[in-house]
Design a protein around this nucleic acid. Structure first.
Lengths: 141, 141
DNA sequence: CTTGTTGCAAATATTTTGCACCCAT
DNA sequence: ATGGGTGCAAAATATTTGCAACAAG
């Protein structure tokens, strides 16, 4: 679907800043971006978008279900495109690269664990912090 | 072990602010406290401890392995006593209460998932955000 | 047109740091 | 005594908000 329609569908006007941000997430090689990251990329691309607008747009996109917000270690929030399938994250401690994975069994066990304790899961985040072994770390500092 | 010795063992002087903070975590009913939480409790207890000192002490305790730092949603970090056994967290979306749980099966599957992708796990965090169901939420706003 | 949206600057919120004084060892 | 520790205020970082100008429908 075109970005324009995607925005209309969630009740947001198709403004330039929104289209730019959405397009950035769809085309960027790095799927996980902070507000600052987005702002800087737009700056270097010559776009005239304020940082406050970036924050507003990211929050709106999150509420609309277009993006997912994550709180990794380090204080700043990062966002990624919501492409339906839930997945968890392995964060490489060498290069901060983020690898995604999904394990149905873990998902089931989480639901079971919550259920047994009288909770209905609304969402969850599983972050594994790890070192590359077989994977030679391509971005190692 | 006495708090005093516990501090000496990690190479920290047994000062009043440190003893107060350690004691707070050991005796508080709420195991998960933010810097602000700790600061406020100490204030109402009549202790004269600066907020900056609370932040410094919490960070030192974390580095010493006495506390574990968590990044839940909401921007602020929370700390809890490190009592050895790893566990995961269910955060109640109604009252922000935190319930702990541990699932050996999930732990195993995490290791397997990381291993299959060529990573060696260093640490991980699993936060489940959920609504009380059977549990009537005691602190509901 | 009309209402939502933006950019800017100022305000918040959280955490860190510089510095002179203080206290545990 | 002395070097680490503390409180305070100021700085740094991350994010939000007020407001007048602006643009999408």
């Amino acid at each position: 679907m075109r970005d324009l329609d995607e925005l209309k569908n969630v009740g947001l006007k198709a403004t330039l800043p929104r289209l730019k941000v959405l397009s950035l997430f769809e085309n960027s090689k790095e799927r996980h971006l902070s507000a600052e990251d987005v702002y800087k990329v737009l700056l270097t691309t010559g776009e005239d978008v304020g940082l406050a607008t970036v924050y507003r747009v990211l929050t709106q996109f999150e509420q609309a279900g277009l993006l997912v917000r994550h709180h990794f270690e380090g204080g700043k929030a990062v966002f990624e495109l919501n492409q339906g399938g839930h997945h968890d994250h392995i964060v490489c401690l060498q290069c901060s690269r983020v690898e995604e994975f999904c394990d149905e069994e873990i998902e089931k066990l989480q639901n079971k664990a919550a259920d047994e304790r009288g909770f209905k899961i609304n969402g969850h985040s599983l972050y594994i912090y790890a070192d590359c072994t077989k994977n030679p770390c391509p971005h190692k500092i």
